[in-house]
Amino acid sequence: MKIVMAKPGLDGHDRGAKVIARALRDGGHEVVYTGLRRTPEEISRIVMDEDADALGLSTLSGAHDVLIPRICALLRDSGMGHVMVFLGGIIPKRDHEKMFSEGVRAIFGPGSRTEEILMFLEDASSRIGSNMPIGVLNDDGWRWN
């Protein structure tokens, strides 16, 4: 898969995002890393220019509540509803349901194993193969838990 890894908003730590980017690369994926402090508009444009299949977002600042819905909406509105969004970083349990309802398909918090993320992507690939939705637009209830 072609995956954009992005750091939305103002937090300044990207070790986690970089570790994931590296792990996904080693898993055979093509990963584009955006660097720190990207706005939702920038991220949406990068996903478009790169024609990515998936978008991994890492946030540690607590602003996910605002940023993630905005990014998902931008993707939907600009014809990229097929793009799969997954999250990492610090997302409190109580916010998970809201994130899922915005179109997010998986949330990987601290302690997640990179193998698990690769399994998730494999699952997503096989869903694409059988024409089942994985993107932010057509939510059929598929989640990675």
Binding site: A21, R22, L24, R25, D26, G27, G28, H29, E30, V31, V32, Y33, T34, G35, I46
Partner: peptide, 9 residues
């Protein structure tokens, strides 16, 4: 692996 990390951006 065929994987790539594209970090130029």
């Amino acid at each position: 692996t065929g994987g790539a990390l594209l970090g130029d951006r």
